[in-house]
Design a protein around this nucleic acid. Structure first.
Lengths: 151, 151
DNA sequence: GTACTTGCAAATAATTTGCAAATAT
DNA sequence: ATATTTGCAAATTATTTGCAAGTAC
């Protein structure tokens, strides 16, 4: 039961010279199948359902490998800042639902005007930017409406 | 030896109903006097120079109070994501030097066009954004130039 | 067959908590 | 005077590592 994204992760893993074990496949599939950010413990719990013999250590090790390969990104939030989400290639940013933790990646932010202005004002040579947005996803907005009708 | 910023932090602390102890004053002054992001251990080390009897526990507790008051912000980076920096009021962002960790806050980012476009495309109700930039500060640029001449 | 990968248990690191003594207001 | 705050030591939590046994290629 591998999604397209799972197959792609497996490809990247092997391309990086790593072996595709049952345990790693479970971790890959969990990440690929989830549209939410997941922390190592959550990945572990979900992976265990598919592959009961997987260990937490392997989850940590596999996440690290995927991170180094650039196949997943770390998602930092004001509170928990140790969760991971699938990374598409290129320069992307995240839009995260603060209610259900689902993550949408987006690209094509145009910050060049803002960045140029800042460079001029501060003298910094700006090398990287990192934009993260949070809000309420469409599904949660619907659920909140239903909820408020019940109350 | 309190800076203006230190006095302001002390004011916020007392306004929040907290007592100003010698230990807390040391933590406040360290944060106020630093233009870099600092993690709890760094705050502890520096505070101990001023007030040797301060404990690491108190540093953690004081940072948490200041955070809840909004007097400091957490600065997250791809790696270490547990450092703190002085927060001015209002909506601000950080520009962080990747070489010396110095931090410049800025406001007046205009992302409304980007955010409106994303709202339309995704259906998310965007409630918060968080932009962090990294690069090389002017002082480090100068040092790097000097360094390259020596090499 | 061999080098990589595994899970476990133990080690390490980071953070929090209970509590009696100290202290700011 | 009194409620808050302290440092310490212990507890908790998160993450990493050493290693012998197992496995993908």
């Amino acid at each position: 039961m591998s999604t397209l994204e799972g197959i792609e992760l497996a490809r990247q893993l092997k391309a990086g010279g790593h072996k595709l074990t049952r345990q790693r496949r479970a971790v890959l599939d969990v990440i690929a199948a989830s549209n939410a950010r997941l922390d190592p413990a959550e990945v572990y719990t979900k992976a265990k359902l598919v592959c009961p013999q997987v260990g937490l250590t392997t989850v940590y090790r596999t996440l690290e490998i995927l991170y180094v390969l650039g196949a997943v990104k770390r998602v930092h939030l004001e509170d928990g800042c140790h969760s991971y989400a699938l990374a598409s290639g290129g320069h992307r940013h995240y839009l995260i639902c603060s209610r259900c933790d689902s993550v949408i990646e987006f690209s094509g932010c145009d910050l060049s005007a803002v960045l140029d202005d800042l460079s001029d004002r501060t003298g910094f040579r700006i090398e990287n930017h990192w934009l993260q947005l949070s809000g309420i996803c469409p599904a949660c907005q619907r659920q909140m409406n239903i909820q408020s009708r019940v109350d």
